[in-house]
Design a protein around this nucleic acid. Structure first.
Lengths: 238, 238
DNA sequence: ACCTGAACACCGTTCAAGT
DNA sequence: ACCTGAACACCGTTCAAGT
């Protein structure tokens, strides 16, 4: 399937080129990554890159994989919720270092082995927690989408500039038509990014999964009648 | 702030131009929306568009707002969960009609009045449910990110082609390093899109919010001791 | 006042030619 | 066999000129 790749006069490899491309994206933004500029930075002719990559998409796939491979999995311990929390936090901080990559992956599944390490860890944790293969897969996907959505659609930082922008937009709303938002404009601004917002959403999803797990095992073990059998407490065992 | 807009010889308005641009995006994809092609379709000179829009970003903002304004809010009734479910489903199907718009909004907050109607409805529903302004805002944001993440990162349809692609990627994985994924490849494929996956995630988030609401009101009304006081049952009242 | 062609500084990629 | 300049068909936007 993969067209055979030649081109070794410069001693370059796909991997090295992808690394330089990632650096270019990180320092100058996604729109700065053109085949011509990349070649310029590598000090090779613009067309030489096509000896290593079929086209730009092929290059972009390699860039995403390079970034994924660079982000090590955190050590996982504790309850399934704690392990998933650590995994997802790690994915988020890794992705946040290369936020432009979110844009790159829109509408294309992320299927390279490097990127699937975290999926393997997440899905297996969910299966150990008691989900079946289907639910564990669906559940991990929800967490995965949350990370990508959060990094892609949030402000890098919750700066005063962001807050001011939201407040200005709030001023444009009529209190008649938007009674809630005109009253909660400041609170809206706080949702556009930041650690607290990320943790809120992660907690909500994990709580939702836990609820699903409980009602599922109740259904299996005791039927709907024995449902509220006093989960001992909400704090996690350590 | 807004540079005064002139240009009326053709009887065109910003709104009309944005509508044509949206149509262009829907029929030929986001990459087909260039200032030159848009002008061509409008049968005006390429530079004339700049009489209506400061630059391409200004145009893109108007396109997003045009799409948002076109999607009417569903009628909301029932419990807060039912109302939110209907609202989020509506947002998803509206956005799914213009999936390229997700790409357009990456890294820029969505603050036009047209796009905020759904936020107003969502946040007010959450406040009525019992959340305070901060939590209601955070919670709606999680749901909003889910819709954008799902539409942006999912396959339009779960075709056999998608499934085949995932199975092929699964074949590349070593069962030693990826024991779970090699065993659950088919289940992974099913998470890449489709109604069932969307509903699964929406249900999880709503369940998580409900759990939060219960533990919050328990904390307020009875302290941590009276925590597991038998929520009557899990089915929704009608 | 309103519109627009020419021009500038870019793209991705094909193709034919260089070594 | 490997590399690459020229060329093609595009971009967004500035600027000076048209009516």
């Amino acid at each position: 399937l993969a067209k055979p790749i030649r081109a070794r006069h410069h001693g370059l490899s796909r991997h090295e080129i992808a690394d330089v491309a990632l650096e270019l994206v990180d320092t100058e933004g996604l729109e700065a990554l053109s085949m011509r500029r990349l070649a310029g930075r590598l000090e090779i002719g613009a067309m030489t890159v096509y000896g290593y990559f079929r086209d730009k998409d092929d290059l972009l796939d390699a860039v995403v994989d390079a970034a994924a491979a660079k982000n090590p999995l955190p050590r996982l311990q504790g309850t399934w919720k704690e392990r998933l929390r650590a995994l997802i936090r790690g994915a988020k901080s890794g992705l946040a270092q290369h936020p432009s990559l979110v844009e790159l992956r829109l509408r294309r599944p992320l299927l390279s082995p490097g990127a699937l390490r975290i999926t393997e860890a997440g899905v297996s944790t969910l299966i150990e927690a008691g989900f079946d293969k289907t639910e564990a897969s669906r559940a991990f996907r929800v967490l995965f989408l949350y990370v990508f959505g959060f990094v892609g659609f949030s402000a890098k930082e919750l700066t005063d500039e962001v807050r001011r922008q939201v407040m200005a937009a709030g001023m444009l709303l009529s209190p008649d038509q938007y009674p809630t938002l005109t009253d909660a404009t400041a609170e809206q601004a706080e949702t556009l990014g930041g650690e607290e917002q990320f943790e809120f959403g992660l907690g909500v999803i994990l709580d939702g999964l836990e609820a699903r797990l409980k009602s599922q095992s109740a259904r299996r073990h005791g039927g709907p009648g024995s449902h509220g059998v006093a989960p001992p407490r909400d704090t996690e065992p350590q």
